[in-house]
Design a protein around this nucleic acid. Sequence first.
DNA 1: TTTATTGT
Length: 288
Amino acid sequence: MAARRGRIAHRWRHRVRRFAITALFLAVATGLWHFQERELRDGLSWQGVTTWEDLTPLTFHRVLRNDGFLVGWSDVRVNPLWVSYLLQRVDDPSSGPRPGFRRDWRALWPISTESYFGSGYDRGHLAPNYAIAAVHGRGAQRDTFLMSNMSPQRPELNRRLWQRLEEVVMDHFVPRFAALQVITGPIFPARFQDNVLNRVGLVEVPQAFYKILVVPGDEPRALAFIMPQRVSGDEPLDDFLVSIDEVEARTGLDFLPQLAPASAEALEARVDTAGWGLEAVARLPGRF
DNA sequence: TTTATTGT
Protein backbone atom coordinates (compact mmCIF):
# COMPACT_ATOMS: atom_id res chain seq x y z
CA MET A 1 0.00 0.00 0.00
CA ALA A 2 2.71 2.49 1.02
CA ALA A 3 4.81 1.42 -1.92
CA ARG A 4 1.90 2.07 -4.27
CA ARG A 5 1.29 5.54 -2.81
CA GLY A 6 4.96 6.27 -3.32
CA ARG A 7 4.76 5.29 -6.99
CA ILE A 8 1.75 7.59 -7.55
CA ALA A 9 3.48 10.52 -5.82
CA HIS A 10 6.54 9.92 -7.95
CA ARG A 11 4.49 9.88 -11.14
CA TRP A 12 2.81 13.18 -10.18
CA ARG A 13 6.12 14.86 -9.39
CA HIS A 14 7.27 13.75 -12.81
CA ARG A 15 4.19 15.24 -14.49
CA VAL A 16 4.47 18.54 -12.66
CA ARG A 17 8.12 18.85 -13.64
CA ARG A 18 7.32 18.12 -17.26
CA PHE A 19 4.52 20.71 -17.23
CA ALA A 20 6.79 23.31 -15.66
CA ILE A 21 9.45 22.76 -18.29
CA THR A 22 6.89 23.02 -21.10
CA ALA A 23 5.39 26.21 -19.63
CA LEU A 24 8.82 27.76 -19.24
CA PHE A 25 9.70 26.87 -22.82
CA LEU A 26 6.43 28.40 -24.12
CA ALA A 27 6.94 31.58 -22.09
CA VAL A 28 10.46 32.04 -23.42
CA ALA A 29 9.37 31.28 -26.99
CA THR A 30 6.44 33.73 -26.98
CA GLY A 31 8.62 36.33 -25.29
CA LEU A 32 11.22 35.96 -28.02
CA TRP A 33 8.52 36.06 -30.68
CA HIS A 34 7.06 39.31 -29.31
CA PHE A 35 10.50 40.85 -29.00
CA GLN A 36 11.41 39.91 -32.54
CA GLU A 37 8.03 41.03 -33.92
CA ARG A 38 8.43 44.41 -32.22
CA GLU A 39 11.94 44.81 -33.61
CA LEU A 40 10.67 44.00 -37.10
CA ARG A 41 7.73 46.41 -36.81
CA ASP A 42 9.90 49.22 -35.42
CA GLY A 43 12.25 48.72 -38.36
CA LEU A 44 9.33 49.42 -40.70
CA SER A 45 7.95 52.43 -38.86
CA TRP A 46 9.92 55.43 -37.62
CA GLN A 47 8.93 56.70 -34.12
CA GLY A 48 6.49 53.91 -33.44
CA VAL A 49 3.74 51.94 -35.12
CA THR A 50 0.50 53.84 -35.78
CA THR A 51 -2.16 53.17 -33.15
CA TRP A 52 -5.61 54.43 -32.19
CA GLU A 53 -6.29 57.65 -30.29
CA ASP A 54 -9.35 56.09 -28.60
CA LEU A 55 -10.11 52.40 -28.92
CA THR A 56 -13.49 51.95 -30.60
CA PRO A 57 -14.75 49.32 -33.08
CA LEU A 58 -14.07 51.87 -35.83
CA THR A 59 -10.43 52.47 -34.91
CA PHE A 60 -9.54 48.95 -33.77
CA HIS A 61 -7.16 47.16 -36.12
CA ARG A 62 -4.50 44.49 -36.15
CA VAL A 63 -1.06 44.79 -37.69
CA LEU A 64 -0.24 42.64 -40.70
CA ARG A 65 3.50 42.53 -41.35
CA ASN A 66 4.50 42.28 -44.98
CA ASP A 67 7.84 42.32 -46.74
CA GLY A 68 8.78 46.02 -46.70
CA PHE A 69 5.60 47.50 -45.15
CA LEU A 70 3.04 47.22 -42.37
CA VAL A 71 -0.75 47.22 -42.73
CA GLY A 72 -3.17 48.27 -39.97
CA TRP A 73 -6.09 46.03 -40.94
CA SER A 74 -9.69 46.67 -39.82
CA ASP A 75 -12.18 43.79 -39.94
CA VAL A 76 -15.02 46.30 -39.42
CA ARG A 77 -14.19 48.62 -42.32
CA VAL A 78 -12.74 45.65 -44.25
CA ASN A 79 -10.00 48.10 -45.20
CA PRO A 80 -6.46 48.90 -44.20
CA LEU A 81 -6.76 51.91 -41.86
CA TRP A 82 -3.12 52.71 -42.58
CA VAL A 83 -0.06 51.37 -44.28
CA SER A 84 3.45 52.35 -43.25
CA TYR A 85 6.75 52.03 -45.06
CA LEU A 86 10.24 53.53 -45.32
CA LEU A 87 11.69 54.62 -48.63
CA GLN A 88 15.42 55.10 -49.16
CA ARG A 89 17.32 56.55 -52.07
CA VAL A 90 18.42 53.76 -54.44
CA ASP A 91 20.93 54.06 -57.27
CA ASP A 92 18.93 52.59 -60.09
CA PRO A 93 15.24 52.53 -59.18
CA SER A 94 13.26 50.02 -61.22
CA SER A 95 10.51 47.47 -60.80
CA GLY A 96 9.62 44.18 -62.41
CA PRO A 97 6.31 43.45 -64.15
CA ARG A 98 3.12 43.77 -62.13
CA PRO A 99 2.53 40.42 -60.43
CA GLY A 100 -1.28 40.44 -60.29
CA PHE A 101 -3.73 40.89 -57.38
CA ARG A 102 -4.05 38.20 -54.72
CA ARG A 103 -6.40 37.31 -51.91
CA ASP A 104 -4.96 37.72 -48.40
CA TRP A 105 -6.05 34.90 -46.12
CA ARG A 106 -5.14 36.86 -43.00
CA ALA A 107 -8.10 39.17 -43.64
CA LEU A 108 -11.13 37.73 -41.90
CA TRP A 109 -13.44 38.43 -44.86
CA PRO A 110 -13.35 36.94 -48.34
CA ILE A 111 -12.18 39.81 -50.54
CA SER A 112 -11.87 38.51 -54.03
CA THR A 113 -10.19 40.44 -56.78
CA GLU A 114 -13.43 40.18 -58.77
CA SER A 115 -15.58 42.07 -56.27
CA TYR A 116 -14.39 45.34 -57.84
CA PHE A 117 -15.58 44.40 -61.33
CA GLY A 118 -18.20 46.82 -62.63
CA SER A 119 -18.20 48.76 -59.34
CA GLY A 120 -16.83 51.98 -60.80
CA TYR A 121 -13.91 51.81 -58.38
CA ASP A 122 -10.27 50.84 -58.90
CA ARG A 123 -8.34 48.50 -56.65
CA GLY A 124 -6.14 51.31 -55.38
CA HIS A 125 -2.77 50.37 -53.86
CA LEU A 126 -2.08 52.03 -50.53
CA ALA A 127 1.54 50.84 -50.30
CA PRO A 128 2.47 51.56 -53.92
CA ASN A 129 3.79 48.98 -56.34
CA TYR A 130 6.60 50.97 -57.91
CA ALA A 131 8.20 52.61 -54.85
CA ILE A 132 8.06 49.45 -52.71
CA ALA A 133 9.43 47.33 -55.57
CA ALA A 134 12.27 49.76 -56.29
CA VAL A 135 13.34 50.06 -52.64
CA HIS A 136 12.41 46.72 -51.07
CA GLY A 137 12.57 44.23 -53.95
CA ARG A 138 10.47 41.65 -55.71
CA GLY A 139 9.03 39.87 -52.67
CA ALA A 140 7.82 43.17 -51.21
CA GLN A 141 6.37 44.12 -54.59
CA ARG A 142 4.33 40.91 -54.59
CA ASP A 143 2.96 41.79 -51.13
CA THR A 144 1.71 45.17 -52.39
CA PHE A 145 -0.73 43.25 -54.61
CA LEU A 146 -2.46 41.58 -51.65
CA MET A 147 -6.10 42.66 -51.44
CA SER A 148 -5.41 43.75 -47.83
CA ASN A 149 -3.37 46.61 -49.37
CA MET A 150 -6.28 47.82 -51.54
CA SER A 151 -8.95 50.43 -51.01
CA PRO A 152 -11.65 51.46 -53.51
CA GLN A 153 -10.52 54.56 -55.36
CA ARG A 154 -12.22 56.43 -58.19
CA PRO A 155 -10.15 56.07 -61.37
CA GLU A 156 -9.55 59.82 -61.73
CA LEU A 157 -8.00 59.83 -58.27
CA ASN A 158 -6.05 56.57 -58.47
CA ARG A 159 -4.66 56.93 -61.97
CA ARG A 160 -4.14 60.68 -62.01
CA LEU A 161 -3.96 62.78 -58.85
CA TRP A 162 -2.83 60.00 -56.48
CA GLN A 163 -0.43 58.60 -59.07
CA ARG A 164 1.12 62.07 -59.49
CA LEU A 165 1.62 62.31 -55.73
CA GLU A 166 3.29 58.88 -55.56
CA GLU A 167 5.51 59.77 -58.49
CA VAL A 168 6.61 63.02 -56.83
CA VAL A 169 7.36 61.13 -53.61
CA MET A 170 9.63 58.60 -55.32
CA ASP A 171 11.21 60.83 -57.97
CA HIS A 172 11.65 64.10 -56.05
CA PHE A 173 11.29 63.80 -52.30
CA VAL A 174 13.18 60.54 -51.72
CA PRO A 175 16.23 61.68 -53.75
CA ARG A 176 16.06 65.08 -52.05
CA PHE A 177 16.04 63.78 -48.47
CA ALA A 178 17.66 60.30 -48.87
CA ALA A 179 14.95 58.70 -46.71
CA LEU A 180 11.25 59.13 -46.15
CA GLN A 181 8.68 57.57 -43.82
CA VAL A 182 5.27 57.31 -45.48
CA ILE A 183 1.96 56.59 -43.78
CA THR A 184 -1.14 56.48 -45.96
CA GLY A 185 -4.73 55.33 -45.69
CA PRO A 186 -8.45 55.98 -46.13
CA ILE A 187 -10.77 58.49 -44.49
CA PHE A 188 -14.44 57.63 -43.85
CA PRO A 189 -17.47 59.83 -43.17
CA ALA A 190 -17.77 60.98 -39.57
CA ARG A 191 -20.95 58.94 -38.99
CA PHE A 192 -20.55 55.19 -39.62
CA GLN A 193 -24.26 54.73 -40.34
CA ASP A 194 -24.09 57.19 -43.27
CA ASN A 195 -21.65 54.95 -45.12
CA VAL A 196 -22.31 51.45 -43.82
CA LEU A 197 -23.90 50.19 -47.06
CA ASN A 198 -21.49 52.03 -49.34
CA ARG A 199 -19.33 49.02 -50.15
CA VAL A 200 -17.53 47.28 -52.99
CA GLY A 201 -18.27 43.68 -52.11
CA LEU A 202 -17.58 43.74 -48.36
CA VAL A 203 -15.10 46.60 -48.55
CA GLU A 204 -16.34 49.95 -47.27
CA VAL A 205 -15.77 52.82 -49.72
CA PRO A 206 -13.77 55.72 -48.21
CA GLN A 207 -14.67 59.35 -48.89
CA ALA A 208 -11.03 60.48 -49.08
CA PHE A 209 -7.41 59.35 -48.61
CA TYR A 210 -4.51 60.76 -46.61
CA LYS A 211 -0.79 60.53 -47.12
CA ILE A 212 1.75 61.61 -44.51
CA LEU A 213 5.40 62.10 -45.48
CA VAL A 214 8.04 62.42 -42.78
CA VAL A 215 11.76 63.07 -43.17
CA PRO A 216 13.20 61.15 -40.21
CA GLY A 217 15.93 62.69 -38.09
CA ASP A 218 16.58 64.97 -35.11
CA GLU A 219 14.74 67.80 -36.82
CA PRO A 220 12.04 65.97 -38.72
CA ARG A 221 9.94 67.60 -41.43
CA ALA A 222 6.49 66.47 -42.43
CA LEU A 223 3.92 67.03 -45.13
CA ALA A 224 0.37 65.70 -45.11
CA PHE A 225 -2.32 65.55 -47.78
CA ILE A 226 -6.01 64.64 -47.84
CA MET A 227 -7.43 63.94 -51.30
CA PRO A 228 -11.16 63.29 -51.88
CA GLN A 229 -12.53 60.57 -54.17
CA ARG A 230 -14.04 63.06 -56.61
CA VAL A 231 -11.27 64.95 -58.39
CA SER A 232 -10.49 65.80 -61.98
CA GLY A 233 -6.89 64.62 -61.54
CA ASP A 234 -5.12 67.76 -62.78
CA GLU A 235 -5.33 69.76 -59.56
CA PRO A 236 -2.09 71.16 -58.07
CA LEU A 237 -0.93 68.81 -55.30
CA ASP A 238 -0.56 71.66 -52.81
CA ASP A 239 -4.32 72.31 -52.95
CA PHE A 240 -4.68 69.27 -50.63
CA LEU A 241 -2.19 70.09 -47.88
CA VAL A 242 -3.34 69.58 -44.28
CA SER A 243 -1.69 69.20 -40.87
CA ILE A 244 -1.06 65.77 -39.33
CA ASP A 245 -3.38 66.83 -36.51
CA GLU A 246 -6.19 67.17 -39.04
CA VAL A 247 -5.54 63.64 -40.35
CA GLU A 248 -5.59 62.37 -36.76
CA ALA A 249 -8.87 64.16 -36.11
CA ARG A 250 -10.48 62.64 -39.23
CA THR A 251 -9.18 59.08 -38.67
CA GLY A 252 -9.03 58.69 -34.88
CA LEU A 253 -5.48 57.37 -35.26
CA ASP A 254 -2.27 58.40 -33.52
CA PHE A 255 0.68 58.69 -35.90
CA LEU A 256 4.33 58.61 -34.78
CA PRO A 257 3.27 57.75 -31.19
CA GLN A 258 6.86 57.58 -29.91
CA LEU A 259 7.72 61.10 -30.97
CA ALA A 260 8.61 63.35 -27.99
CA PRO A 261 5.66 65.67 -27.16
CA ALA A 262 7.61 68.86 -27.97
CA SER A 263 8.63 67.56 -31.43
CA ALA A 264 5.13 66.21 -32.05
CA GLU A 265 3.63 69.61 -31.30
CA ALA A 266 5.95 71.35 -33.76
CA LEU A 267 5.60 68.68 -36.45
CA GLU A 268 1.91 67.82 -36.33
CA ALA A 269 0.07 71.07 -35.72
CA ARG A 270 1.31 73.09 -38.69
CA VAL A 271 1.42 72.97 -42.47
CA ASP A 272 5.06 73.79 -43.21
CA THR A 273 6.24 73.30 -46.79
CA ALA A 274 9.65 74.97 -46.34
CA GLY A 275 12.46 72.92 -47.85
CA TRP A 276 10.31 70.47 -49.82
CA GLY A 277 10.34 72.23 -53.18
CA LEU A 278 6.71 71.29 -53.54
CA GLU A 279 5.75 74.27 -55.75
CA ALA A 280 8.14 73.03 -58.45
CA VAL A 281 6.42 69.62 -58.71
CA ALA A 282 2.83 70.32 -57.65
CA ARG A 283 1.64 70.82 -61.25
CA LEU A 284 3.63 68.14 -63.06
CA PRO A 285 1.36 66.39 -65.55
CA GLY A 286 0.09 62.89 -64.99
CA ARG A 287 1.64 59.88 -66.67
CA PHE A 288 -1.68 58.36 -67.75
C1' DT B 1 3.10 49.48 -67.97
C1' DT B 2 5.65 54.03 -61.60
C1' DT B 3 -2.36 53.68 -62.65
C1' DA B 4 -6.18 50.43 -63.79
C1' DT B 5 -10.66 48.52 -66.10
C1' DT B 6 -13.16 48.08 -70.21
C1' DG B 7 -13.84 46.24 -74.27
C1' DT B 8 -11.59 44.45 -78.57
